[in-house]
Design a protein around this nucleic acid. Structure first.
Lengths: 338, 338
DNA sequence: TGCTATTATGGGAGCGCTCCCACGAGATTT
DNA sequence: AAATCTCGTGGGAGCGCTCCCATAATAGCA
């Protein structure tokens, strides 16, 4: 069926061992022999058997991508597709493959077991871990290389790729305040998700820096979905905010819809700002002021860093923080007079 | 590190073979022995080594999911996330795992080789194969079980899960015609994608059934993206259609935007209908008349069918066609007088 | 009672690979 | 000149599992 090392060896007139050395770029192989083996392998369309390699060497060139699906809602915004694309693309470029686990809570124990003990994963990318994700604990106990997409709030011994959610949010809210808004509200993300908590933190910081006391009535938690943003905004309207920082664009789109239904104009009656810069943000009506984060790039970097971490284990964690960009569009409006 | 069969055997006071039989639900094991082995395995948190199992038995309980990324645009609409969710969910429920390949054209040959010859995939789900997808040819030549999501136009020896795109589109266009529209246009999907071609086919059929000649000026091909829909609609506007059937909701949202900018009201000046029923469709302004297709369910069924196909190989292909549903919302408007 | 099914179990072989050690030949050192 | 050190190569062992065959114990039937 599939070509084996031994066959290549026979055709090239060398031993199995030599072919193996060639395939793994080991030194101490004659230039000429190497070339001959390479060409035979190519012509026989040889592909090493991953299972055998894994058994013998414990290395598979497969990365696991684990996405907790407690918040399955997340899958309806373009965040994960972009992340996956970035990861897959890096894997393609580096001769790796991806195994995907959508960790549904009801199968949690089994998923963890599969991921950790199946023996066919070289490392794990854990995307948007929850605050107290059991997968994280299991990973660290097992000693399998892994990297988070999205930092961990308490544990600073783990590697991650992230953007600075706190400061990005803070800057956005500071911008709204500078425009002259007095009652800046926020629609926050779920508090058990790190990005949600961080962006709320940034909001609070910006207020504090201006010496403004946070008004609990102007802070509503939602679930990162359009629908959630819609409902949250309906709850916010009676409290008459003059600007709202929404912790994701998907929610901002929902908020926009609620405002339209409430007969409020954006940005004339109320300014709005989102987070993410999803493709639709620029095309919303009005176009959405938002924070751009390089999602696909984060995926690529996570994969690349993990691959490096696997072949060059290091005690100290890698922490990669990518820059964001404030995109000022029409939804935040001009400075207001006073 | 990881627990092995042999350890379980020792703890349970039986042989490796017996443990293997228990783990694979083979008959001819004493009830009591079986229970004992089970409990030992459970308490030692045993997980079979996938690589070893694969090597020995040629079965891995891993499904490959291959998504051609020629049209990476596809990833910005919720189709694939939903499909993936359905597949992953079925895999979780059936003790399988998923390997994901986003087949970028530049790595095509290598991807095919990895998928087919790595030896760690029991079967493949190929999503939205292109018209002449080389992966398909390779799969069939290799004899690996596989299933398509989205039928194949010429090859009817392959298994697939799909909706009846032709008839669903036909019905939607027939509905628009029944409302009294005279110049029904379409924004079609890419012609090298089967769903795109099929929906266009349905459009043409509906016209033919009414004895209406297709007007080339009223048919514009786009790429299933919002942006593509926007541009397509701009090109359509000068030809004054009174209704447009858009082959995907994502494109319909773009079309809506183009119409708004052109100062045309929906549905008063022009009726609009989409396809897919993405979550946002119901919340668009106005809410979008569309065809609902059970995307997540298609994923689940594809995975379940494939798993069945792997354990019970059959010569004849399985063809599963799921029903769609016409959702009449405001964007198509009421019947028009004449 | 003898004989053949049936059931429960153990152990060997081997899947395709990597790693380690052994070996010979040539280069380098003393 | 002998001793040592490279380098290139081959072959054995073994990763953890499944499959097959052998064996023993029991059941079924004449």
């Amino acid at each position: 069926m599939s070509t084996t090392l031994e066959e290549i060896a026979k055709h090239a007139g060398v031993s199995r061992s030599t072919v193996s050395r060639v395939m793994n770029d080991h030194p101490n192989v004659d230039q000429e022999t190497r070339a001959r083996v390479r060409s035979v392998a190519e012509s026989l369309n040889y592909q090493p058997n991953v299972a055998a390699r894994s058994l013998a060497a414990g290395r598979t060139h497969i990365l696991g991508l684990v996405i907790p699906m407690g918040v399955s809602a997340l899958f309806s915004d373009p965040y994960f597709p972009l992340l996956i694309q970035g990861i897959a693309s890096a894997c393609n470029a580096n001769e790796h493959s991806v195994m995907l686990w959508l960790a549904e809570p009801e199968y949690e124990r089994r998923t963890i077991r599969q991921v950790l003990q199946g023996g066919l994963i070289d490392g794990v990318i854990l995307a948007s871990a929850l605050m107290d994700d059991p997968m994280l604990e299991a990973l660290r106990k097992r000693g399998l290389p892994f990297i988070l997409v999205g930092r961990h709030p308490t544990d600073n011994e783990v590697s991650y790729v992230d953007v600075d959610n706190v400061n990005s949010a803070r800057e956005m809210v500071a911008y709204l305040l500078r425009l002259g808004h007095k009652r800046v509200a926020t629609i926050a993300g779920p508090n058990n998700m790190i990005a949600g908590a961080d962006r709320l933190q940034g909001y609070l910081l910006a207020l504090r820096n201006r010496g403004i006391a946070a008004n609990p009535a102007l802070i509503v938690e939602a679930d990162f979905t359009e629908e959630g943003g819609y409902i949250a905004m309906q709850r916010l309207v009676p409290h008459a905010p003059d600007a709202v920082f929404v912790a994701s664009d998907a929610m901002a789109v929902g908020a926009l819809r609620a405002l339209r239904e409430a007969g409020l104009r954006v940005p004339e009656d109320i300014a709005l700002a989102g987070f993410d810069d999803i493709p639709f943000a620029a095309r919303a009506d009005p176009p959405l002021t938002t924070v751009r984060q390089p999602i696909q790039r984060m995926g690529t970097l996570a994969a690349e860093t993990l691959i490096d971490l696997i072949s060059h284990p290091q005690p100290q964690p890698r922490r990669i923080v990518l820059p964001t960009e404030l995109l000022i569009r029409e939804s935040s409006g001009p400075p207001i007079g006073r």
